[in-house]
Structures are given as C-alpha cells and as structure tokens.
C-alpha cells in the first residue's frame, strides 16, 4: 500500500529515529497549542498566558484566553486527535490510503443523523453525538457492504464512499434548507470549522476522545495482524470479522464526536495518518500515537492560521484543509494509479 524510498525506510527503522520523531511531534503539538493561544485579533504574550493559568492575570486578557482561545484550542486538539485516529483506523480496515472519514462518507452519515436530531428534536440535543455515531457506523457498514465483492478493493471503497457521501450529503442539504431558521451556522457545519467553540463543546468531545484513543491503542497490535491480509490474520488466530467490526465502530465513534462539534471537516483524517506513516512506518503501535500528536499540531496550527490570515474575517478551518487536502488526495490517487 505504501512505498517509501529506500533511504527513508533505512533511516526511520532505527529506534532513535522513532524517539526523535516523537519528541519533535510532541513539541510540534505544544507549539501549535501555544501558537493558537497567542495569536488573534489581540496579541497575547506567552508570559501573560502563563499568568492567566497561574491566576495572576485578570480582566479582558483572562477572558480572551480562558473563555475563548483556550477551550477552542483544546477542542481543535481533540478533534485533531479524533479525526487522525479515525483516519488511520479506517485506512487500515479499508486497506486504502485515501480512506478518510470525510471522503468515504462516514462524516456525512454522522452529519445527517446529528443534524436531524438538532433540527427535528431540538429538545434532545444531548442525543446528537449518539445519533451521529449511529449515522457514522451505518455509513461505514454500508460502504463496506457496497464495496464488498469477493474481498474489498481500494477503488471500490472510494467509489462507494462517494455515492454514500453524496446520498447523505443531499439529506443534510435538504434538512438545512427546510429548517434554515433552526440551524445557525449551517455553512460552518458543512465546511467544518471551530469558531465559537468553547467549554461545552470540549465536554461533549472529551469522553469520546479518551475512550476512542484508549480503544485504538489497545487494538494496535490487532490492526498490525489485520494488515497482513485476512488469510494470514485468520491463520494467526485473529477474529478477523469481529476485529474489523469493533475497530470500525471505534473509528465511527471518533469521527462522529468530531463531526457533532466541528461539522464536516475533511481531509484531516487522510493527510495526518499518511504523513505519520511516512515518518514512522506502518506499525500501528507507533503510528497511532504519532498520528494523534500530529493531528493536534495540524488542527491547532491551521485553525489559528484560519483565524488570522484574513482579519477581520475568520475562515472556517475546513476551507484550508480542503484547499490543501484535495490536491493531496489527487497526488495519492496518481501515485496509486502508477503502482497498480
């Protein structure tokens, strides 16, 4: 599935390289968080931020950091983790480097169910994430079933995903058209963005991030075995179908919780795991934590850029991710085309 140049393969197999990559990724994630905290319409110095956290700072700076930027940054970080892990898991399950919750329609399934709860049963808002989870799981299973024909072929997954995505997408558009008065920020939801995300959103997504991350890390070795192919995995005593179902559920949960907070944010789940794979290789025990850290860095940095690039207009981060992600998708498609 992946071919890296020989020099890269030689170099990154060393343990010290992996340790170095983890340190760099952790620094990058921290840098992204700090960058997000200091940047914006009001520039806040790092010392002032430290003061805010130690309770020595009051007034407007404290409000900006504590009530606006800090929770938003944390939401960005968690969403980055969720989408990256979901992407890494789906890429393994579907055996396709281009599988991303957004592209293969898991996000739109989650979005349709989530929005349906939001506009049709506004009193049950707390059911949004569970509903989005059902939508995500449903669309993952649907895509898998549609693409299944004596095994799963990468190309068919993408095509089935496009169809499923279009189907659920038109459902979302229909709901947003009929109930435009009930959904504020419909455009933001469709593109995917983090504006005005705060503590309640953090509370919403945090439990799923923790559960999903734990499950993903616990399944890492099983994912490795699964990557050998169904025949070898069965021969090694892995419950192949059961593992695939559980991991798909975990990926669906991770993407659904992200979707219910930031909307249909695409390409994070494709770019981040792919970049992580190039850096550390395909061993899921290393790949998953690397992808999670990189996800934090990517989403915090790009969300901050989206905020400050055209002041006073704040772009939804989904626009940036799309502008970067679509060419990347085409690059992967061409590269794969040459190998097959």
């Amino acid at each position: 599935m992946y071919t890296a140049s020989k020099a890269v393969v030689e170099f990154r197999k060393t343990v010290s390289w992996r340790v170095a990559v983890f340190i760099i990724l952790a620094c990058l994630a921290m840098a992204g968080i700090v960058f997000s905290l200091v940047s914006g319409a009001v520039q806040v110095g790092i010392i002032e931020i430290v003061d805010v956290f130690t309770g020595q700072q009051d007034g407007s700076v404290r409000d900006i950091i504590w009530n606006i930027r800090f929770p938003r940054t944390l939401v960005a970080a968690l969403v980055g983790v969720n989408l990256s892990l979901a992407g890494a898991l789906l890429q393994g399950i579907m055996r396709n480097a281009m599988a991303d919750p957004h592209i293969i329609g898991v996000s739109s399934g989650a979005g349709l169910f989530g929005i349906a709860v939001l506009v049709l049963f506004p009193a049950y808002g707390y059911l949004m994430t569970p509903a989005a989870f059902l939508g995500a799981l449903g669309s993952a299973v649907l895509i898998y079933a549609l693409a299944w024909q004596n095994g799963v072929r990468p190309g068919r997954i993408i095509l089935a995903g496009v169809a499923v995505s279009a189907f659920f997408g038109s459902g979302i558009s229909a709901l947003l058209t009929f109930y435009s008065d009930r959904v504020d920020g419909a455009l933001l939801f469709l593109v995917g963005g983090l504006s005005a995300k705060s503590w309640p959103h953090l509370q919403l997504v945090l439990p799923y991030t923790i559960a999903g991350t734990l499950f993903a890390l616990l399944s890492a070795q099983r994912m490795n075995i699964l990557m050998l192919g169904d025949a070898d995995a069965k021969g090694l005593g892995l419950h192949v179908e059961r593992t695939r179902l559980w991991v798909t559920a975990a990926a669906a949960l991770l993407s659904a919780s992200a979707v219910s907070v930031v909307g249909l944010l695409g390409f994070v789940g494709m770019i981040v795991p792919h970049a992580a794979r190039l850096l550390v290789g395909s061993d899921y025990r290393i790949l998953l934590p690397a992808a999670a850290l990189l996800g934090i860095a990517v989403l915090t940095i790009f969300d901050t850029l989206a905020r400050i690039i055209f002041p006073p207009v704040e772009l939804p981060v989904g626009i940036i991710m799309g502008a970067l992600g679509a060419p990347f998708f085409l690059y992967l498609l061409r590269k794969r085309g040459m190998h097959e």
Binding site: T3, Q221, N224, L228, A231, D232, G235, G237, G281
Partner: peptide, 30 residues
C-alpha cells in the same frame, strides 16, 4: 487452533511496510 496449526497461504503480491523481525514476531500473537 493457531498455536496448533499454522498455514502459509499462497503468495500475495500486496506487501506491508514493516520490518522482517516485526512480521516474524506476529507469529507469537496466538
């Protein structure tokens, strides 16, 4: 069953991006 009987299925062209040592150590999975 996997501790008792191992099968080498027919060669698949698809290969994965891991070290030989890791691949062999997957044999300990069962």
């Amino acid at each position: 069953f996997a501790r008792h009987l191992a099968i080498l299925s027919q060669v698949q062209e698809r290969s994965i991006d891991i070290r030989v040592h890791d691949l062999v150590s997957y044999g300990r999975f069962p």
